[in-house]
Design a protein around this nucleic acid. Structure first.
Length: 148
RNA sequence: CGAGCUGGCCGGGCGACCGCGUCGGCGUCCCGUCCUCCACGAGGCACGGGGCGUCGCCGAGGAAAGUCCGGACUCCACAGGGCAGGGUGGUUGCUAACGGCAACCCGGGGUGACCCGCGGGACAGUGCCACAGAAAGCAGACCGCCCGGCAGCCGCCGGGUAAGGGUGAAAGGGUGGUGUAAGAGACCACCAGCACCCCGGGUGACCGGGGUGGCUCGGUAAACCCCACCCGGAGCAAGGCCAAGAGGGCGCCACACGUGGUGCCUGCGCAGGCGUUCGAGGGUUGCCCGCCCGAUGCCUGCGGGUAGGCCGCACGAGCCUGCCGGCGACGGCAGGCCUAGAUGGAUGGUCGCCGAACGGGAGCGCCGCAAGGCCCCCGGGAACAGAAUCCGGCUUACAGGCCAGCUCGUCCG
């Protein structure tokens, strides 16, 4: 699992990002992204709704981007799906520090991802992120470059 | 040494860096309760909860799988009767229970160790037995054989016959004899089989022996069916607690005219229907009867809303070791151990090294009559598969490896 603060957990959030967010597809995955200004009212509502004290006070503004994963049965069986999920998770985790703090992201794996290595998944992820202009231009090689 | 049988166990290893979850320790911050005080606040070596940081322990399987059985647990029901329905099927045990397991019996297979069996009943009844064949269930004359008649040489008609041929998964006891026109359990002897009776052994399935009988009476119950035994319903999205939904409508009063106070109604809205001593509707596994609950209303249709947190939730028919009882499944006693608990779902990612299977090659080094094996080099890179309330099983998938016992064959002593 990613750190709790960087996780997308509610089904509503997934639906919102997938339906309303901007999209970029690659051979092995599809990215759905939504910036904070669009999601902010939703966050405010949640923060004020009930128990404002239980939510971290930094939730609305600061904190890391929040990411969720979708790996359907079309990708493979349980073992294959979990393997893809784990590789994607580690690839995304390396990029968390350079992503905008108010970003909500859903990474959807496509069937070819089942055979892909972590390096291939990382390449697709970076390409999709760059297409959505979510990666800073002045950091050509992100922290993941160290292992790639 | 070779071939095999059975049982049990394991199911990639090591390291570096980065990362996740539960629990615990420490530090820090926040909140609540309580207490104290110089009291719109502050403090506390009190209690509880949470965030962050850091350290430590632990963290997928033999099948976690299919979800096919059986239970634990939870809620509902418990008033029964009849008819349906489902399941199981040698015996005796084991077990919480089972459709599971063990031992044994019976039948079949194997030289053997062993293996396989959805193993009650076909004189309670009904049905079915394709194709082939003359005939397939109160059997049956196609060829053949025999007798008689006609015809006279081929043959035709009538009758007898299940010993022979042919068909078939199966043709209704087998062998030998008596007998006959030819034959036939028509009769006889032995054998097989069936039914009944007696004796002996075994808890029992059943086994062994003897006698009598008519001479023989097919298969199929995973066809209906009969017999015996068993079976309430739903399922952890069970169920419990909290939060939320959550406010709305109508009336009255007050005033700084939009708010406040108060009373009644309503647990989403709209529409339609039914009903409260002549009872809507619900429960009782299905149906009928009966019984119970029952108006704080109930039912149907359309549209809408909700599924956030905590508990359940991991000490259990638990695991390991030893001893005892038992052929065994298993049981008893003693000691020790605590061993995953996620919830968009942790148990991992990347890299390096070692590496089994498998593929290729050379030497003429070792073993061997030989096929081949060992050694050496290169390539290659690890099967099936991921907990979701928990146990006991079954079934299915699975690269390869290890251990023990046993059988058969060959050689040596």
């Amino acid at each position: 699992m990613l750190p709790a603060a960087a996780r997308l957990t509610r089904g509503q959030d997934f639906a919102l990002v997938v339906r309303r967010g901007r999209r970029a597809g690659r051979a092995r995955l599809v990215l759905h992204a939504m910036r904070g200004d669009a999601v902010a009212p939703e966050r405010e509502r949640r923060a004020e709704g009930h128990g404002a004290e239980q939510t971290s006070p930094t939730r609305a503004g600061l904190g890391p981007a929040r990411v969720g994963f979708v790996v359907s049965k079309a990708v493979g069986g349980s073992v294959v799906r979990h393997g893809v999920l784990r590789r994607l998770r580690h690839v995304v985790r390396d990029r968390l520090p350079v992503l905008p703090a108010d970003l909500e992201l859903v990474v959807r794996a496509l069937p070819p991802a089942a055979e892909a290595t972590s390096a291939e998944l990382a390449a697709d992820l970076d390409a999709a992120l760059r297409r959505l202009r979510l990666l800073p231009e002045d950091s050509p090689r992100d922290p993941a470059a160290g292992v790639a």
